[in-house]
Simulated assay, not measured.
Amino acid sequence: MIYIYTKFNSLEQKKQERIINEAMKEFARSGYDRASTNKIIKEADIAKGSLFVYFNNKKELYLFLLDYISEAVSKIYDEVDWTETDILKRFWDIGLVKLKFYKKYPQAFDFLKAASHENAAEVKSEIDKMSKANFEILFKRFYEDMDLTKFRDDIDIEAAISVMNWTITGFTQQQVDRLSSSDEISMDVLEEWQKYLAFLNQCFYKKEENNEKTNKGQD
């Protein structure tokens, strides 16, 4: 449940997103205790002191971010077909939704990952309360109920999945760096993503699986 922050919510959308992204960036980079609200104010290009007009203190800002982004990620992941057991087809869906989300909140996953390891006493108990409901869904749901029979017998499946994960993360970040938040995801991006998935298919799947299409739209 996201608490109501009337003054913050009254800001134009782009300004809200700028504050959210710069705050997540600073918390992810420095940790809660060392994070500087002055840096957030400077990078977000807002008036000095205005941050605490929207949020009473650093703790309130941090918990707002945690709640806001966790709920936003959960909603966007509803677009993924979790009944799909082929990991490459699932990665196709995940790649698209992550690209869409990264375009709007490029710091979100770094922030959530940092939060999952945050030990600051001031926020630790609140993080622990949310962890079961949010972090497990965000990071473990990827790999549930996967069909591992498609992998070659001589493959270290755990290592292969790690390579797949690094590929999807790297590709998504590369595209985010190229696109502005207003750009649509072009056919060129989709075709390039499909090529990466086809390559992973050839590297890790059994030969009889290599001819299967990884793009669900072509099934």
Rank of each mutant, 00 (worst) to 15 (best):
N211M: 13
K59L: 02
F109D: 09
T169D: 15
F27S: 02
S181G: 06
E209W: 10
E12Q: 12
T37C: 10
K103Y: 05
K100E: 11
R29N: 10
D156F: 02
S182H: 13
F151G: 06
L96V: 04
L179V: 03
L51K: 01
F142H: 13
F171T: 02
A159E: 07
I87P: 01
F91M: 09
I157M: 02
D145S: 13
N9E: 14
I185R: 00
L138W: 15
N201Q: 12
L148D: 08
I94F: 02
R29A: 09
T6Q: 12
Y54K: 04
K100S: 11
K216H: 04
K39F: 03
R18A: 11
K39L: 10
Y62G: 07
A47P: 03
R152V: 02
D93K: 01
N57A: 00
E122I: 01
T6V: 10
K14D: 13
R152Q: 11
I19R: 07
E71Q: 12
D156K: 07
N21V: 09
L51M: 02
F139R: 10
S74R: 15
N215Y: 00
S181W: 10
N165S: 12
E208L: 07
A35N: 03
A108M: 08
K48N: 12
R178P: 03
F109V: 06
L148K: 14
V189C: 03
D188I: 01
E17Q: 11
F142W: 11
K100R: 15
A47D: 10
F52C: 00
T214F: 00
D110Y: 09
G217F: 09
Y102K: 14
L148I: 09
T149Q: 10
N165D: 15
K75I: 15
L66S: 14
E158P: 00
M164C: 14
D86N: 14
K207E: 14
S125Y: 04
E12H: 12
F151D: 07
K7E: 15
S10T: 11
A114D: 04
I127R: 09
N215W: 00
K7T: 14
E22S: 11
V73M: 11
E192K: 04
K129C: 00
A133D: 13
I40Q: 01
N21H: 05
Y32K: 08
D93H: 10
A44L: 03
S162L: 03
Q218S: 08
S74M: 15
F139A: 12
A160W: 05
E191K: 04
E208A: 13
E208T: 13
R18S: 08
D78E: 15
W193G: 00
D93F: 12
Y77D: 09
E118D: 12
K140T: 07
A47F: 11
M1G: 15
E118K: 06
A133Y: 09
R29I: 04
T83E: 14
G31P: 05
A121K: 07
Y32Q: 07
Q107P: 03
E17H: 10
S50C: 03
R34F: 03
L96T: 01
I69R: 04
L179W: 04
N211S: 13
N210K: 08
D183K: 04
K59N: 02
W82P: 01
Y105F: 15
E22I: 01
A28H: 08
D110P: 00
I94N: 02
D145F: 10
R178L: 13
Y3H: 05
S74W: 12
F199A: 13
D110K: 14
